[in-house]
């Protein structure tokens, strides 16, 4: 697998992500500047966490205008796999690649803690390494992770099986306990918890490896389209 990790001014989990994919999962990975305009040659694209452009207007609101974003939209439209984590998730919703939006946590406080999650759908390209209903623990670290979508959108998400991870103990007020979800096609995943922070026993756990293992499996001998079809 050859992965691109996007780096916006203010991204701060970009090198953590390249470490997890490169050093730990042993894949080909490259940082790609938000100023770049092409994603040719990559099998998947990761939008990492951080505070892109300071996140002063709304999280992800400025990042969606970065030069790389039209290439990212084309990449996703062509069925390429896109993973957005934390600020990456916020950017993907702002850019319209995922439904809904992320509001302030109901406590109005930033929360950093290990958080139990339930795998709600283990048939997506991002979750086959887990089993359905499995409880895993991943760290969260965000102030604006409270997922909101209107009732009709939520009903669609549930009907299509787009919810991939749910909080076992909702820390932020997210509707339907949503911690991570895909687009309807299943090739774009956004999640607030940080899988790249849970890939080494030394640092407290390896429950996050499944996300990367799933992607690697989805990529093996299967063009993106085939992999996404297995989801439906």
């Amino acid at each position: 697998m050859k992965a691109a990790v996007l780096s916006f001014p203010g991204s701060n989990c970009d090198t953590d992500m390249t470490w997890a994919i490169g050093e730990v999962a042993g894949q080909d990975v490259q940082l790609v500047s938000a100023q770049a305009t092409s994603l040719a040659g990559f099998d998947c694209v990761v939008v990492p966490g951080g505070f892109s452009y300071g996140d002063y207007l709304r999280s992800g609101a400025i990042a969606k205008f970065a030069p790389i974003m039209s290439a990212l939209k084309d990449f996703a439209a062509a069925g390429g796999f896109v993973l957005g984590v934390c600020n990456g998730f916020q950017i993907l919703t702002e850019a319209g690649l995922l439904p809904g939006t992320l509001q302030w946590n109901t406590s109005l406080q930033f929360i950093c803690q290990p958080t139990p999650l339930i795998v709600a759908n283990a048939r997506t390209a991002f979750s086959t390494a887990y089993s359905e209903g499995q409880q895993i623990t991943l760290p969260i670290a965000h102030g604006e992770g409270n997922y909101y979508a209107d009732d009709a959108t939520l009903a669609d998400l549930e009907k299509n099986g787009q919810v991939v991870f749910r909080y076992a103990e909702n820390p932020n007020g997210s509707r339907n306990d949503i911690a991570g979800l895909t687009n309807a096609r299943g090739n774009v995943l956004g999640m607030m918890p940080h899988p790249e922070r849970a890939v080494e026993t030394l640092l407290g756990g390896t429950d996050g490896l499944g996300v990367f293992d799933s992607l690697i499996n989805a990529m093996k001998g299967a063009p993106a389209d085939v992999a996404t079809r297995t989801f439906a």
Binding site: Q103, W104, T106, S107, L108, Y148, D150, G173
Partner: peptide, 10 residues
């Protein structure tokens, strides 16, 4: 109006 605003609530 339909969206819950945590700041307004507080």
């Amino acid at each position: 109006p339909s969206v819950l605003d945590p700041k307004a609530e507080v």
